[in-house]
């Protein structure tokens, strides 16, 4: 094991792969962002930072970032909060009083949407939410609502409809991770708390949450990155509409690349989006290291 240099042979394949699949394309994409280019054989025109300047004044772009915040609410905030509660209920309430089989069955049910191809999930929801013959509105009409809402067609409502589907998609992920996290918490902590007369809620806040912090961090980090990247649900459910009310950065980049043939501008959006993601992830990682050290 003395020859340190031999190890690089083992790293060679992934370094070549990384360079070809991630590094070069990423750099080329950044280079594109300095040009005005319609794609294909069309001429390249040097723009410098022109695309970036245009981006700062582009209302659609700011709208897409505002919507990213709503995506974070739907993918990070709501599922994490519901997920932690569900996990605690399943693990030490249902699991202990009704048997672990029932708890495992419920857990699998909540996780099911996570293994679904997004193309399928998107179809199901666009059909369930359809204004004319969607299941929700058919049901509402049957119970006597004369004029049910147009879930995906109303600009004031569409974003919330998309969020509903995202919560449904996401919820199983925190539940499963938190249940696994709870299983490694020392039961004696709870026994001691019980002796001190602490109720379920008190134990939840004082023991459960602090004990599963590492998993909590992983869920929040990965889900936040996922929320900033969300694409397929928007493409399939709304196509960014109505009236651009559900546009997100990734969809806006896609539209510029493949529908508007503004490749340079699309690359600019993608570059800015990557930088935002890297920055958010870096801040979260640094913050976590710090709080770990001080703990």
């Amino acid at each position: 094991m003395r020859n340190k240099r031999g190890w690089w042979l083992y790293l060679l394949p992934i370094l070549i792969g990384f360079t070809a699949i991630v590094l070069i394309p990423f750099v080329v994409n950044v280079v594109f962002s300095f040009f005005r280019w319609k794609g294909g054989m069309a001429p390249f025109r040097w723009e410098g930072l022109g695309n970036y300047d245009a981006l700062l004044h582009d209302e659609n772009f700011w709208m897409s970032f505002r919507n990213s915040i709503f995506m974070i609410i739907a993918i990070v905030v709501i599922p994490t909060m519901i997920g932690i509660l569900l996990a605690a209920v399943l693990y030490d309430y249902i699991g202990k009083r009704f048997g672990s089989r029932i708890a495992a069955f419920l857990r699998a049910t909540y996780y099911l949407p996570q293994i679904l191809p997004i193309a399928v999930a998107g179809f199901i929801w666009s059909w369930v939410l359809d204004s004319g013959n969607g299941s929700i509105n058919t049901f509402l009409q049957k119970v006597g609502v004369a004029d049910p809402p147009d879930w995906l067609g109303n600009p004031d409502l569409a974003l919330y409809s998309v969020m509903l589907m995202l919560v449904w998609l996401q919820i199983g992920y925190p539940v499963v991770i938190f249940i696994a996290a709870l299983s490694r918490v020392d039961p004696e902590l709870y026994e001691a708390a019980e002796l001190d007369g602490a109720g379920w809620w008190r134990q939840f806040a004082a023991i459960t949450i602090p004990q599963i912090r590492p998993e909590l961090f992983i869920v929040v980090l990965t889900a936040t990155v996922g929320a900033l990247k969300v694409f397929a649900p928007i493409l399939i459910l709304t196509g960014g509409g109505p009236e651009g009310s559900t546009v997100v950065p990734s969809y806006y980049a896609y539209r510029n690349f493949f529908e508007l043939s503004q490749v340079g501008y699309g690359s600019t959006i993608a570059t800015v989006m990557s930088l935002v993601i890297f920055a958010v992830a870096a801040v979260m990682l640094i913050w976590q290291r710090r709080s770990e050290r001080s703990a």
Partner: peptide, 8 residues
């Protein structure tokens, strides 16, 4: 994000 790689 795959958007930043897709065109290349």
């Amino acid at each position: 994000p795959h958007e930043a790689l897709i065109y290349p």
